[in-house]
Design a protein around this nucleic acid. Structure first.
Length: 665
DNA sequence: TGGTTAGTCGTTTTT
DNA sequence: CGACTAACCA
């Protein structure tokens, strides 16, 4: 197997002398290094799979890694191998150790919508901006491992004090719900390990070798978790690329790359610079753009896959025209090469940009799938069903209670809920518990109380059965009992009920499979489900369709032909990033986009687009000017502009010759 | 209590 | 222009 690797890749795989950092440029085979290293650890170094943990950032990446390792070694040898995201790993640890933290092991996980609701209630506001920024500030505090108490003590200004108070009450609310948010899943294990060395030791013994993927995306807490688990032996391999760090806004800290060298002086640094994905011109563009950023580690990608076609830049007048031209190019290219739709990806900065493309795709009957954006788990009908399951697993989960008791409608309205809520608050119990309390029963009329009681009795019965009965059939029974399908058909706007019901069926199928395969109860499954965007990507692979994706969601993927749309000032780089001096990260985003392309890259922008209903003049992105002119052909037309001539034949010849020389051909 | 409607508001990226 | 909310009627 090792012969399939190039020299630095092999070096990275076999190095077991201590901490190892692999600086892996885009397309340089980092997943291959990680998977081969796992195989090497088991096969050659004689390690037990259950002592190895590979940590990624997305479930998709984890799944892919699992599959690729599965192709290298027989199943028996991989038994107990941990391949998971930081969040799933934290979740696993916390389910086992919850009691050390005063939580019950059946705690719920709150998604950001639930969290936003809590914040909005605490602040008594509906201002989305304010809620958003409060959430992100609390998240930052958590990621820097500052507790509510510490935040209160540290507060320097009125604003900071308010924030700290909000943080405190938010956290108290979470505790009352017996719920954790995403950040807690990382933060609490670190707290736990610091407070209980014996627990840390247990996990150090269990996870003796760590492999961390996308290391440049780790935040302070995640790095501390890695450091704690790696312990004094420092047996880990981190793989990352500072040029692909695009998550600073959610706390990722590129400086962790430098810290690694500081904290582990013996760190072995290995660079992977040969790219196996893109043709030379694409890499030249990528290198040129990223060259405008300051460098942490010197690194230059190269490939021997040939020069390739020039990068095409399409100009158009409006966003509709942009979509039309991009799709024209896409269709004619696909026609000429007789290729598959799935060879094409359209990438953009923000989710909303997909809509215009989507509309035209639909009109032209071009098949497409959208990755990123609203995940399966975020769909209303799925959240409805999961609310029931969450409540069954943890009856203290008030958001789940509220959602499930009101969907489908069962005669419990806002007034009753309000009463229940304030009663629960004064008694300091959950909504669910309050329903059974004498004090509450007398507060409402029998007609209002009846449905509440019926609902809670129903949940109680389900709880008894959920621990023992097969998951799939029980869930089906639940859906039948609440008449969920009928409810969907009665509410088939704006999305058709068939589609929603299909999603629910997919969920049932997934849970049934999980229940049978791993012999897990409904409760077991529900407790891990919050982090799984399960059906994501399921049919993506076998359906022949154009991929629409945000730049963020495209990281780690590759496509023969890539279109990068909306390449304009205030979009890419995004306005907020320009205002907050974050243009370097936007440039890395551009870099990520460019390096997704294998054979051709087409970039587009338009002269004006609608924003909040108003037409706005737009300027081409500054990043366009950073592309090497000799590798670019501009086509299309902008209002007032003549199409620009391509380079002359002679110029191109000379440039090509120079290029060939540069890449050593 | 629940569904309909007429206003209002405003677009980053995600585990 | 379209999604989402707050008042409004059945």
């Amino acid at each position: 197997m090792l012969h399939l690797l190039n020299t630095p890749q092999r070096e990275a795989v076999v190095y077991l002398g201590g901490p190892c950092l692999v600086l892996a440029g885009a397309g340089s085979g980092k997943t291959r290094v990680i998977t081969q290293k796992i195989a090497y650890l088991i096969e050659k170094a004689g390690m037990n799979a259950k002592n190895i943990a590979a940590i990624t950032f997305t479930n998709k990446a984890a799944r892919e890694m699992q599959e690729r390792v599965g192709a290298l070694l027989p199943k028996e040898m991989l038994k107990g191998l941990t391949v998971s995201t930081f969040h799933s790993l934290g979740l696993k640890m916390l389910r086992e150790e919850a009691r050390h933290l005063g939580y019950k092991p059946q705690f719920s996980i709150l998604d950001s919508a639930d969290a936003a609701k809590i914040i909005s209630e605490q602040l008594v506001t509906t201002d989305k901006q304010l809620i958003r920024s409060s959430m992100s500030q609390i998240s930052m505090l958590k990621n820097d491992r500052i507790s509510p108490d510490k935040a209160l003590a540290m507060a320097q200004s009125e604003g900071e004090l308010q924030l700290a108070k909000l943080y405190r009450s938010y956290q108290d609310t979470l505790f009352a719900y017996q719920a954790l948010d995403f950040d807690d899943l990382i933060r609490l294990p670190v707290d736990l390990f610091e407070a209980h060395p014996e627990v840390l030791e247990k996990w150090q013994n269990r996870l003796r070798y760590l492999l961390v993927d996308e290391y440049q995306d780790t935040n302070t807490t995640q790095y501390q978790l890695v450091k704690l688990l790696a312990g004094v032996t420092g047996l880990f391999t981190a793989v990352g690329d500072d040029d692909q760090s695009i998550y600073a806004w959610r706390g990722a800290n590129v400086d962790n790359l430098r810290l690694l060298q500081e904290d582990f002086p013996k760190l072995q640094v290995i660079k992977l610079e040969q790219n196996y994905r893109s043709m030379a011109r694409i890499l030249r563009c990528a290198n040129a753009v990223i060259g405008n950023n300051p460098k942490l580690f010197e690194k230059k990608l190269w490939s021997d896959l040939g020069v390739g076609d020039p990068i095409m830049v399409i100009e158009s007048k409006t966003e509709e025209e942009e979509a039309a031209m991009v799709l024209d190019h896409l269709e004619s290219s696909r026609f000429l090469s007789n290729g598959k739709y799935s060879n094409y990806a359209i990438l953009y900065r923000g989710n909303h940009q997909a809509r215009i493309i989507e509309k035209q795709m639909w009109g032209r009957r071009i098949p497409y799938v959208i990755s990123g954006g609203q995940s399966f788990y975020d769909k209303a009908e799925i959240k409805d069903v999961l609310a029931y399951l969450r409540l069954i697993a943890n009856e203290d989960d008030d958001p789940a209670f509220i959602r499930s008791v009101t969907t489908p409608k069962r005669g419990v309205g806002n007034v009753t809920l309000e009463k229940l809520g304030s009663y629960a608050a004064t008694r300091n119990v959950s909504f669910f518990a309050a329903v059974y309390e004498e004090g509450f029963i007398h507060q409402v009329q029998a007609a209002q109380y009846e449905p509440l009681r019926l609902f809670c009795d129903f949940i109680n019965r389900m709880q008894d059965r959920a621990a023992k009965e097969p998951a799939g059939p029980l869930l089906n029974e639940l859906l039948l009992a609440i008449d969920f399908e009928t409810w969907l058909y009665e509410n088939d706007e704006p999305r058709p009920a068939e589609a929603k019901w299909k999603n629910v069926q997919d969920l049932v199928a997934w849970i049934t499979k999980k229940g049978e395969e791993d012999d897990k109860s409904l409760i077991d499954i529900v407790q891990t489900i919050a982090l799984i965007t399960m059906l994501e990507g399921r049919d993506e692979e076998d359906v022949d369709a154009v991929k629409l994706s945000t730049l963020h969601a495209s990281k780690g993927l590759e496509y023969p032909h890539v279109f990068l749309i909306g390449c304009e000032e205030n979009i890419l780089p995004h306005q907020n990033s320009i205002e907050s001096n974050m243009v370097e990260e936007e440039r890395r985003l551009m870099y990520v986009g460019i390096t997704r392309a294998q054979r051709t890259l087409t970039i587009s922008y338009c002269g004006k687009r609608r924003r909040a209903g108003e037409w706005q003049i737009t300027e081409p992105s500054r990043f366009l000017k950073e592309l090497p002119p000799e590798d670019v052909i501009i086509s299309g037309r902008l209002a007032g502009d003549k199409p620009k001539p391509a380079m002359s034949k002679e110029e191109r010849k000379a440039k090509n010759a120079e290029l060939m020389a540069r890449i050593g051909k």
